[in-house]
Every structure is written in C-alpha cells, then in structure tokens.
Design a protein around this nucleic acid. Structure first.
Lengths: 226, 226
DNA sequence: TCCTAAATGCAAGTTACCCGACAATTCAAA
DNA sequence: TTTGAATTGTCGGGTAACTTGCATTTAGGA
C-alpha cells in the first residue's frame, strides 16, 4: 500500500480529525497495515505485544472464550470501528480473538504502548477515544438487556433490524443486506441454538417475508416480522 | 464536609495519582459532594447537565430501563468506582439510573464538560480514565457470556464468588459478606426469577452450606456450592 | 468435474426455569 | 403494639427453546 493511501486512511477517520496533517503523517510511521482473508484469525496479543486495530474494510467478529472453552460472539466490527486491546492490554482472565467474516479485510494497527504515547501527546484525541469506548460499553449493555427481556424471535428481529440499519440498502420498506454470516454464526450472536434460528428463518421464508441466502438477506418489511 | 477531607478523598483515588497536590486542589473546586440514603435514586442527567460520579462510600446499583420500561441491574458499583455519564452524555435511547443499596453513600461528582476539560489538560489522566472504562467493558462482557453459558445456579455461584472476593471477610474457607441486597435484587442481577433464586438459597441452607439473612451472608466454602 | 466438509432442514424428546398463586414471615412506620 | 407493605417460602403447571439425531443441500478445493 502506498504511503499516500495510508495517509488518507488515517486522515479520513473520525478519530483523527482532531490532528493536523503533519501529526497524521507521524501517526503513519507507527501504523502497521495488514490485509486478511475470510476465516483468518487475528490475535490481539496479550501483554507487551498487544495491539489496537482499526478496521478499514470488511467485517469481523469478536469472539470471547471463557475458561471452559465456550465461544461467544460478543460483537460484530464493521468498517471504521476500533477493536483489539482497547483497555491497553491490562487483561483479566478471559481471552478474545477476532475472525474475518467477509472475503477480505483491510486493517491498520498500533502497538498499545505507541498509541498510549500518542494519546498522551494529544489530549483531544484521548477524549475522542474515550467516547468511542464509552459508546461500545453502551452497545454491549444493550445486548445484555435484550438477552434478558426478549425471546429468541425478538432478539433475531432486533439483530436483523440493527444490521439492516447499519449496512442494509433500503428500497422503500424492502431492505437488502449483503450476507457474510452463516445461520450458525447468527445464532451465536443472538445467543440461541442453530436449529431455532433456522426454524425462524424458514417460518418467515414460508410467509414470504424474508429471503435468506449466503449472499444476501432480503426483507420485505422489517416491521412485518413477528 | 471540610475542604481538607474533600482534598484527601480525591488525593487517595487511584485515578488522580497522576496529578500533583495543587492540581488536586484545583479539582476540588469543580467537585460536588453529596450524601444519599438507602433507596434514593440518582439520575445521571441527560445532555447538558450530565455528570460523572465517584462513589466514596457504600454501594449502589446501576439500573437500565429499556423502551418498554423493563428494568435490569447491569452493574453493582462499589467504593472507589466511577459511574454516571461515562461516555460524556452522548446517549443513545436507553435510560439508566443509580439507586443506593447500602444505608447511605458518599459520592462526589463532576459535570461532564468540566471533567472533559480536566482530561484535556492532563492526558495521563485521560489514559487512566480510559483504562477504567475498558475494565468496565470487560466486566459486562463477562456477565454477558455467563448469561449464555451458565445456568441459574452457576450464575448465582459466580455472583456470590465475585461478591465474596470483592467485599467478603474470609476466615479460612468460610466467608462472610455484609448483605445489602434482597433476594429479589440478587435475582435481577443474575437474570433469574425471584423464586428460583430463593429455592437455590434454601437448598444450600438445608445442606448447611450457607446462611442467608438481610444483614449478612455466610458461606462455609465457596467451592462446595454446587 | 467430482468429492468432502460445512451449512441447512426437519422432527421428537427433554428440561430448566418462568410464572401465578398464596401463605408465612419480617420490617418499619405510625 | 398494631398494621400494612415488602420480603421470603413453597408448590405445580406450562412452555420456550435446547438437544440429539439424521437427512438434504450447498460450497469450494482438488
């Protein structure tokens, strides 16, 4: 990737708007670019080598692994979002990794120590960053409350609605989403079993409300799902 | 409260270690102190008037209310922890409030705008703050994964273990926790029904493993709960 | 093109846990 | 001390959704 392209990747990101051009040039130096293909795993790295990532293109999932080896998809990261050792590598027990969902992703990363130094030099950046993390906290809290109050069908609807609003292409009430998730993955996101999720999709399919394929999901009208 | 006491409240907090004495004195000026009694509700205040709180004494619960009015306890805040508009008041939909659990609490607070200004002046403080938020994110992610992978009994054990480690007084294997929660509240924390929680406590009580009262909870041996 | 592994479809058996109902107890205020 | 509200104790019915198990379809590499 050319230096110029690298520069614009960072320059265009909301987080770095507070920096001037020469500051962004400096930032380029500590930035590491990477391309990864579908299925590839990205390890945040614990401790010293921990990194913060910025996803430039594509989507990936954040998987949390508990002490018994259970895997849970805690978040879907999309273009422009940060992930990785957001708390600067001071980890407690549980382990997380990211896995690429789309055909390929482009991402850049910083060593947490470098990034921490950068924040120390640019307080306004530190505040923007803090707001981002705060927002993430809110998102997961919301998922948490969904899990308790909504049943599986409602959670699936909430997930589809959210996804459609984030990345869907609307034509009137109809919405079309580029699909990079299997039903199994969707079930892991909404905390349900694969079979239950499949069943819900088929019910809707029979009612002509939805059309699911590995390439795309078409929904006639989000409000009619029930 | 005397100025000197106020000073030491802030001086002793981990978050402000990076500041020197005169900086802490300045911080005192923008700080608002408050005492609140059991049951009292603390509204973070949306938008302009939003505040960040630091709990100096006691415990309180953070309750999230969704658009249908359902209430969920998303976190228990204890001495020394921050809560409130941690994401600087940029709120999305859902509403949160805090309610005092112990007989009384002492807390100090800052206007988010003031606090933001403070962070801008002290980048190292901004980093400490970010780490705190990151840690909170981790905690809720952990609860989230518990909710999916563990059954009610396991979640109750996890909660009690966590509580005991945070605030319990150990005597060998036995641990005694000052109790400020009703069984209903505990059930709301572990995302269960009141009846199921009661039943679990009674089972353990009959086995002589635990002794529950409104004042304290005694557990013979955390590892024997099963 | 074939071939294998992954993804999807379908059904019946099982169960953890919610929910309603009500009694007994505790607590705090009057 | 009384009184009423909140908390705790106990029971059983109902059910959403998990599980197990297998058949079918799809996708992607050799």
């Amino acid at each position: 990737m050319s230096e110029e392209v690298k520069f614009w990747h960072l320059r265009n990101h909301q987080l770095f708007w507070v920096l001037n051009n020469s500051q962004v040039r400096q930032l380029c130096i500590i930035t590491n670019y990477k391309r990864a293909k579908k299925g590839e795993m990205i390890d945040f790295g614990e401790h010293e080598s921990s990194r913060i990532y910025l996803l430039k293109r594509g989507n990936l999932k954040i998987v949390q692994v508990d002490e018994e080896g259970n895997e849970l998809i805690v978040d879907i990261i999309q273009k422009g979002e940060l992930f990785g050792s957001l708390n600067f590598g001071q980890d407690n027990g549980s382990y997380e990794y990211a896995q690429v969902l789309t055909d390929s992703v482009v991402l850049c990363s910083f060593n947490t120590a470098d990034f921490e130094r950068l924040l120390a030099e640019h307080p306004t950046l530190a505040i923007s960053y803090t707001k981002l993390i705060g927002f993430r906290l809110k998102r997961i809290k919301n998922n948490y409350s969904n899990l308790f109050f909504k049943n599986t069908k409602e959670r699936l609807i909430a997930f589809l609605t959210d996804w459609a609003n984030r990345e869907g292409r609307f034509t009137g009430n109809q919405v079309c989403i580029d699909n990079f998730l299997t039903q199994k993955e969707i079930s892991q996101i909404i905390c349900s079993s694969r079979q239950t999720t499949t069943q819900l999709f088929n019910e809707w399919e029979q009612q002509g409300l939805i059309s699911y394929s590995r390439k795309e999901i078409m929904i006639k009208n989000l409000k009619e799902l029930a």
